[in-house]
Design a protein around this nucleic acid. Structure first.
Lengths: 214, 214
DNA sequence: CCTACCGATCGGTAGG
DNA sequence: CCTACCGATCGGTAGG
């Protein structure tokens, strides 16, 4: 009797194929949507047989969920750390501008825009993915801003009776225009100079509404 | 010689079937997207044979273009007239609130939200539809607001060095949060009380930033 | 003879 | 793990 698990001793590390499938599937789903993606194409792109895909993911919906869940979590982190440092120096406007530029860079990354488009397209079929995207994205950012704005208001550095509303206003003053241009106009690239201009304007408007009295 | 165009005298008005096809296709496309819609289902929903659909629309893409073009134009009008009357009375804040409520009602109508979702989902394949939606929707609104804000600034009733930027800020302060909740969270209904609260807050923030000096 | 339309089916491909 | 293949359904078109 020869080894019935010969494949375990092969040069193939365990999990390598699963990672290849997820990576390929992410690319294909982001480009073609749920219905536009075939399991055959995913298998071919991953360099495995279709049957192998089904060994790791029971069906197309489960593969899609793994793709979106993974992509949403990769995207989630970058701003929350920045928010805690808002106004630790004495130039709050500069801190807000820097935060806005970072947020714009993260949210307008082509992969994140594609994920947003995908999640919006499938929000009817998979509402939980839209909710996860919102929670990890704008929801998390606005919550973090609200907490920090409340502290800044207590210190007299912002006029914000309703810190949560101020946080939402800041977030959308920064993000709404470019996100909508990206979603509807298909705009895919945002030069650094554009991001700086958008951030400057959003912060100026925000501070005219919420800045401390001169 | 008998009439050789007897069918013209039938009880079927000309264009009646085309209208039924467009109406059915609009419903099916809005619910299921481009790839999720089959021509068989459209034909069935319209109560005609599939052959009849192909007599009016050469292929699926042409039918889709007719649907989106028609839906975008139906959606376009309602705010532009209102904008011209902004500040004709002496209570600019009240006028802005009323405009905001009307805009919210129009843009958050279930059919318009479904159209936005559809257009975003297919922006890769049909960029012209996203551009048409933007032009007829936010683009048109922001342009109209910019023109009126420029006049109001000249009269000293707004502090707006850059009326176009002020118009975009107003538009997104009003629309961004509910649109993003609708797109990502799948929120479909917005009670009148919610719209009033959103409008009140957006106008208050806008006037703190752009209102005339007290 | 033209149109509008039907029932049935074409070649390919979907998820499984 | 691959090839082959299923029931069904896709967009589009045949004959009558």
């Amino acid at each position: 009797m020869v080894d019935e698990h010969a494949s375990v001793a092969s040069s193939e590390p365990p999990g390598r194929k699963q990672a290849a499938i997820l990576e390929a599937a992410t690319r294909v789903f982001l480009d073609n949507g749920f219905r536009g993606t075939s399991m055959d194409v995913v298998a071919r792109a991953a360099g495995v047989a279709k049957q192998t895909v089904y060994q790791y993911f029971a069906d197309k919906e489960r593969l899609f969920a793994a793709v979106v869940g993974g992509a949403v979590n990769v995207v989630a982190d970058p701003v929350s750390a920045e928010i805690g440092r808002l106004g630790t120096g004495d130039d709050l406007a500069a801190d807000l501008r820097e935060l806005a530029v970072r947020q714009l860079g993260a949210v307008l990354a082509p992969r994140v825009l594609a994920l947003r488009r995908l999640v919006i397209a499938e929000a009817g079929r998979f509402p939980e993915h839209g909710q996860a995207f919102f929670a990890q994205g704008p929801g998390r950012t606005i919550d973090g801003l609200a907490a920090r704005f409340a502290e800044l208001a207590r210190d007299g550095r912002l006029r914000a009776d309703d810190p949560a509303a101020a946080a939402a206003d800041f977030n959308w003053l920064v993000m709404a225009a470019p996100i909508n241009e990206a979603m509807l106009l298909g705009r895919a690239t945002f030069p650094a100079a554009d991001l700086a201009r958008i951030a400057d304007h959003a912060v100026a408007t925000f501070l005219r509404a919420y800045g401390p009295p001169a």
